Computed example of a mutant assay.
Amino acid sequence: MRILQLIDSLESGGAERMAVNYANTLAKKISFSGLTATRKEGELIHQIDKNVSYLFLNKKRKIDLKAIFKLRKYIVENKITIIHAHSSSFFTAVLVKLTLLKIKIVWHDHYGTRFKESWKENKVLIPLSVFFSSIFVVNYQLRDWSQKKMLCKRVVFIPNFAIKENNVDEITNLKGVDGKRIVFLANLKNPKNHILMLKAFLDLKLQESEWTLHLIGRDYFDEYSVLLKNFIDSNKLEKHIHLYGERKDIQFILSQAEIGVLTSTEEGFPVTLLEYATNKLGVVSTNVGFCPEVIKNEITGLLFNPLNDFELKNQLQKMINDKVFRKDMADKLKVLGDNNYSKEVAVEKLLSEYKRLNQ
């Protein structure tokens, strides 16, 4: 099999991380594994395996003929049979297919909010779905939405997975006291809902017991970012809540923390939870999207309604207060992740779908 992962950027988002994960894993299992970034590169470029064939299109506009024909040439030269297009990159994939009709497109939907949207918000996607051979989704809500709305009726749930690297970079040393660090791994943007966590930290007066909060993720230096920084400054929390921006040594960062949090108001299937699981963190998570399938409340972690600040504070306090309970949940989450959301489970399902398309 000769497969290309297509993604619009290599910034550290969930869809982007999965595109890299798939390309790297498939490089060891199929005859050709390629990865193409259409518009932007980013921190994830450093995580691409040396056995993956990589191409950057540097696409400048929505319809960029130079980029399209550059991709077409790459596909022909490498005898690629399937484009696995992640999220918004479907548009580029379809434009290439119009010049190369034999190529097959798999579209992978990572966008957790889509199940709430109508035809109007997807007026380009839905008509172009007639060119898809299959649709992959990261949770059951997205599966149901695609089956009802899309013109391609082959819809398959493929679970996300996290990869634990053997050679871990050790660059970012977290501030604060060992054993009292909370990490929040998410880019600074909606719908990640960081402000809810900041308010809970303040209301619980966690700084008085030496706990610290560490925000890891891309800073877009916009209104969202300013709101968080103003909150930290105005409440004199600079020594207790730390922003690190986008980082590549995620495993090393997580190895220094005790608790991982996620407060999003919308999610697809956050790879963040699997990364917390891999590193045996106690997890306090939003209950949206696929999160309740991974975090079984009071078994593998603690869940809360992201629109209810009291629930978050209650669950966070419970996680902080009981170290034995926290460790037990972290151990169970690691087992659940290994058994149900491992690289092997996801890739076996993925290869099965690829084989069906190549027949």
Rank of each mutant, 00 (worst) to 15 (best):
N308A: 04
E43C: 09
L98M: 15
E208M: 06
E208S: 10
N287R: 14
E267L: 02
T300E: 01
G13C: 00
V177E: 10
K149I: 03
F221V: 12
S134K: 14
Q141H: 13
I253L: 06
T36G: 05
H240A: 14
I126F: 06
Y354P: 05
S255H: 09
K73I: 03
S33K: 08
E170K: 14
E41F: 07
K180Y: 07
L185F: 01
C291W: 07
Q5G: 02
K123N: 14
I3S: 03
T300L: 10
D109H: 07
I295Q: 10
K40R: 14
D109V: 00
D222W: 00
P127A: 08
F304T: 02
A257R: 09
V137Q: 00
V294T: 11
K116W: 09
Q5H: 00
F221I: 12
F201W: 00
N308Q: 06
S209R: 10
L237T: 07
P270Y: 03
L213C: 07
K343W: 05
N21G: 04
N122S: 11
R247Y: 02
E121N: 11
I7W: 06
L65Q: 13
I82E: 08
E210D: 15
A330K: 08
F91G: 08
N297E: 11
V52K: 05
C152A: 01
L98K: 12
K116F: 15
S89H: 07
N308M: 10
V106W: 05
F221H: 13
D64H: 04
K313W: 03
W119H: 12
V345T: 08
L196W: 00
I171K: 15
L351I: 14
N287Q: 15
V106M: 04
F221N: 14
E165A: 12
A67F: 02
L307V: 12
N230I: 09
E267N: 04
K62G: 11
Y220I: 10
W119C: 11
K280Y: 10
H214D: 01
S53W: 08
V271H: 06
L243Q: 14
H108I: 09
K70W: 01
R143Y: 02
Q256C: 00
A257C: 12
K229R: 13
I182Q: 08
I182R: 07
I195Q: 11
R61M: 11
N78W: 13
D233K: 14
D203Q: 14
A15E: 03
K123M: 15
K102G: 01
R61S: 15
D8R: 15
K59Y: 12
S129D: 07
Y341A: 05
K97V: 09
G42N: 08
L198W: 06
A93E: 04
T212S: 09
K97H: 10
V168Y: 00
L198K: 10
I75C: 05
I7T: 13
D338V: 09
H214F: 10
L185G: 01
G34A: 10
A162C: 10
V261Q: 03
A23D: 03
N339F: 00
L262T: 00
V94C: 04
F252K: 10
K313R: 15
D49I: 09
F56W: 06
M18C: 00
Q5S: 06
H84V: 06
H84E: 00
M18Q: 11
I216G: 01
K199A: 02
N297P: 12
E210Q: 15
E258Q: 13
K97A: 11
I82L: 03
F132R: 06
W145T: 04
V324E: 15
H214C: 08
